[in-house]
Design a protein around this nucleic acid. Sequence first.
DNA 1: AGATATTTTTAGGCAAGGCTAAAAAAATAA
DNA 2: TTATTTTTTTAGCCTTGCCTAAAAATATCT
Lengths: 217, 217
Amino acid sequence: MTYSEENYLKVIYHLSLNHSKGVNTNSIANVMESKPSSVTDMVQKLAEKELVIYKKYQGVSLTEKGKFTALMIVRKHRMWEVFLVETLDFSWDEVHDVAEQLEHIKSEKLINKLEEFLGFPTEDPHGDPIPDRNGKIAKIDKKLLSEINAGKKVICVGVKDSSPPFLQYLDKQQIALGSTIEVVSKEDFDLSLTLRVDDKDVTVSNKIASNLFVKTL
Amino acid sequence: MTYSEENYLKVIYHLSLNHSKGVNTNSIANVMESKPSSVTDMVQKLAEKELVIYKKYQGVSLTEKGKFTALMIVRKHRMWEVFLVETLDFSWDEVHDVAEQLEHIKSEKLINKLEEFLGFPTEDPHGDPIPDRNGKIAKIDKKLLSEINAGKKVICVGVKDSSPPFLQYLDKQQIALGSTIEVVSKEDFDLSLTLRVDDKDVTVSNKIASNLFVKTL
DNA sequence: AGATATTTTTAGGCAAGGCTAAAAAAATAA
DNA sequence: TTATTTTTTTAGCCTTGCCTAAAAATATCT
């Protein structure tokens, strides 16, 4: 399994979660910052190895084998993120690029020992669940903050967008995983929200609220 | 800098330590388990990037830039070995292959944070010195056990061969870094040695003794 | 020194993984 | 339903890093 094949499987896995049907070539190319023709090539190779199911013009989906492989990569990515934040004091906006490299290290023993050292974490620093060594992944019950009505109290449990600018914005507003957030009011005009976090009021745009996962109490 | 280029620089660095002149193509190919012609190709590319000095038929040596790059790879390799043994409880014969992968992770911040977490170690689990972030590497004063005369007491400080079978043999004889070893006698015929380790006598061949570094007390 | 053996380089080729441009299929619009 | 647009695939090319076989340079032996 090459570095490149692993990346394709990972991307197909993530895209499958939304696009319930076959994932189309174009969207893979967009995420990978490559060209649709390159995707077609690789997808055909993956199909020969029985990692994906692919029919021309019909999009692509993972086989069981492909899905397991993808889950193991996601497992490694998220586990390393926990390590970077918990053990090495990285902040949550700094871990992605390094984890993107570390996820390709091939050693079952390493990832299992790391998991043990970290105390069998179930979520990464962005609130995403970590698959276990059998590929089992918890489904976390969460809603977007933008779907919450005024007056409700919720807890921040994850982010949809984990790009550094967004994460740094949240740091600045002192919103972190586990923060209690009360939706004080919602503006009809632009769907912006006024929140109460740590006894302070903050107003956030709909775009912000659409990228923050929360759970109702 | 590609994975492959990094491996060449590392190998050239290690070979330079012995072969005080230019390193020859053949020995690089042997270590890399590739062919001399492939080495010639790559060495020419590295010369264009000013990482090595290369004249046809004259062997190759590292430039300052190339040497620094090689030292940073060695630094990462040995630092990760410490992590695997100290933090994740790997044994010293299990770490090499994983460290071989981890040494290519590109993040200065990661290696420096890891160094801090590990308490600024100066040696890896095989007794080899770890270069600091400026590329400075301690020269450890050591001799081969095979050069020690009968009657002397020494301390084990490193191994020349760090292959699993050799390391496992040492484990079996209860010889570890820091062990005190007394050379009880030396056999003229085959240069085998009788040692006293932890109040027990062990006889080792010259081959074993030629792969164990010690320091005299 | 001259002949032979060894080492190193060159030449040409191959697979992986990308690209562009053109062709084919599918989706959309009239 | 036919025409047009969009998406996807194919064809052919490029670079990287490896290979084998042949040629060139160096080293060794007598």
